[in-house]
């Protein structure tokens, strides 16, 4: 499946060269990276974060400031920023992850507010509400990623690598431990899962992924403003996770794709985006609380199992 999708993505720009369309799919790629990380944290580990746009923003502004203001080369800057954001996440996560449920949601939301205000108010460093422009493009030597086609390849390679890494993670014992802790923390701990550490680790991992996506976002558009990193971005990302499917890596791709594309497909949505997102979220939560992909997958596995058993009972009866 990964190979198939990669091939499709490789060929995509050959028959679709409209820069606007590619711009949209590139945005899907960036969102997918954030949503993958967030899905590990929300869907697999069963926690909640309404503050991941903060890490996304810190990554973007981190890259913008280190490369734009201080002239560091973009690639090492991106790594440095990701590490710094990881440390911030660790620092935030240690106290905050003692909480759960609504309290955790409020704490992460608060963190997002703080970061957003800092981006907005510290205008000598961030440019304030008018944004930060003149961020250099990423480049390999003379080959600069400055048009949509080149960016397409760059961003989707990043996304596919992240997707692959996440798929590996959830298939491992670590992933099993996370799902276990999401379902029953006490039982998971009794079976040897270090629940506190696992939560912190996955939080930091998801923050680092958000930061990478933020850096790519900054270099891709060369202009960023605090608006992109407010709490509504955070909730949009949670919506992407929920709609795509909690605890489904492929669902992350689907959710990010669907929610990014919706306003493009139907022009009316442009103005009523938040209403539509909210409406979809309510519908999904009511009818498929595990999200579209995971919910359907669950239904199929249960049906299959019951069907098999019925077949067996019939065999036994005859």
């Amino acid at each position: 499946m990964v190979v198939m999708l990669s091939t499709l993505l490789m060929l995509f720009p050959l028959f679709e060269d409209n820069p606007y369309t590619l711009g949209v799919t590139n945005l899907i790629a960036i969102n997918t990276i954030v949503v993958l990380g967030l899905n590990l944290f929300i869907g697999y580990a069963g926690q909640i974060s309404l503050g991941h746009a903060a890490f996304f923003g810190l990554g973007a502004y981190g890259s913008a400031i280190t490369t734009g203001t201080y002239g560091l080369p973009p690639w090492p800057a991106m790594l440095l920023v990701a590490m710094a954001v990881g440390c911030i996440a660790l620092f935030v996560g240690i106290p905050v992850l003692r909480l759960s449920g609504h309290y955790l949601a409020m704490a992460t939301l608060g963190f997002n507010f703080v970061v957003h205000s800092v981006l907005l108010e510290w205008d000598t460093l961030t440019g304030g509400p008018s944004g930060f422009s003149g961020i250099p493009y990423l480049a390999f030597g003379d080959f600069s990623f400055d048009d949509e086609v080149r960016l397409h390849y760059l961003l989707w390679s990043f996304t596919m690598i992240c997707l692959l890494l996440c798929l590996n993670l959830v298939r491992s014992g670590v992933g099993r431990g996370l799902s276990a802790l999401a379902e029953d923390e006490t039982a998971a701990a009794a079976l040897g899962v270090n629940t506190r550490l696992a939560k912190i680790k996955i939080f930091v991992l998801s923050a680092v992924m958000a930061s990478l996506a933020g850096s790519l976002f900054a270099h891709c558009y060369s202009f960023i403003s605090p608006d992109s990193f407010g709490i509504f971005t955070s909730t949009d990302m949670v919506i992407m996770v929920v709609i795509g499917g909690m605890g489904s890596i492929w669902g992350s791709l689907f959710g990010a794709g669907l929610i990014t594309l919706l306003p493009e497909w139907i022009g009316v949505f442009e103005n009523y985006k938040d209403f539509v997102h909210g409406g979809i979220l309510v519908l999904v939560l009511m009818f498929l609380p595990q999200g579209l992909i995971s919910g359907l997958k669950d239904m199929v596995t249960v049906r299959l199992a019951l069907h098999k058993q019925k077949g067996k009972q019939k065999d036994a009866a005859t």
Binding site: L165, S172, G173, V174, R176, G177, A180, L191, G192, V193
Partner: peptide
């Protein structure tokens, strides 16, 4: 999950 202790590897290795 009952074998978690023996799985004992880091997140990065798992990825």
């Amino acid at each position: 999950t009952g074998l978690t202790c023996e799985g004992g590897h880091s997140m990065i290795m798992a990825m």
